[in-house]
């Protein structure tokens, strides 16, 4: 819940509660729409980039050098991404993205940001104690893995290229894309086999 007591917030809540009472709407249906935007539509674009980078070394090289140009070729919906930078994880380096000022986010490749991304606690703590926050979110990294925290801004958006999981050598690019989650591309999770 939120402390938002603006008339718009109250009216939205009023409409939703009335519709639910009249059985015209379920909160789950509203959640499903929001989830579709946040976890499927947008992140699939980023997942395609990641899967192709895993299978096509030349593409990966281009993506790491100039992701903005690569994304322009794809013509994703959601408007222009001014400048997109892709950071590649390996066993020694992990990358995680935050926007400490607000909630800048690469919408065109990741869809709508998850609610925690805007949370003041995430925004401040991921910078101060990234290893601890990642562990709390379910990603335990070895002490020998260096963690880089990238601060998004209106000028630069970051996308994390996660490590390709072992045991996926026989999977096709589209099968690989299905494994890639939004959270892995923000850097708060790794890609795992189902």
């Amino acid at each position: 819940m939120t402390d938002d007591t603006s008339p718009q917030s109250i009216r939205t809540e009023a409409i939703e509660s009335l519709l639910i009472e009249k059985a015209l709407l379920s909160a789950n249906a509203v959640d499903a729409v929001i989830t579709t935007y946040t976890e499927r539509v947008g992140p699939m674009n980023g997942a395609k980039l990641v899967a192709r980078a895993w299978t096509d070394p030349d593409f990966k090289a281009r993506l790491l050098v100039d992701a903005t140009a690569v994304v322009e070729e794809y013509q994703f919906e959601g408007g222009q991404v001014e400048k997109l930078v892709v950071k590649e994880c390996d066993p020694f380096q992990h990358h995680v993205v935050v926007c400490t000022l607000c909630s800048c986010y690469p919408w065109a490749v990741l869809g709508l940001p998850p609610s925690w991304y805007k949370d003041p606690a995430y925004r401040s703590r991921i910078v101060a104690e990234p290893r601890k926050v990642l562990s709390e979110m379910g990603l335990s990294l070895s002490e020998s893995t260096h963690i880089n925290v990238w601060d998004s801004s209106a000028e630069i958006r970051y996308l994390v290229l996660p490590q390709r999981p072992k045991g996926t050598e026989t999977l096709s690019e589209s099968q690989l894309a299905k494994l890639v989650t939004r959270d892995a591309m923000i850097g708060v999770a790794q890609v795992n086999l189902p």
Binding site: Q8, S9, W107, S115, A154
Partner: peptide, 11 residues
């Protein structure tokens, strides 16, 4: 703005 839909509040 800059490729993202802007939601300023949860509502």
């Amino acid at each position: 703005a800059n490729g993202e839909i802007i939601f300023d509040a949860p509502w």
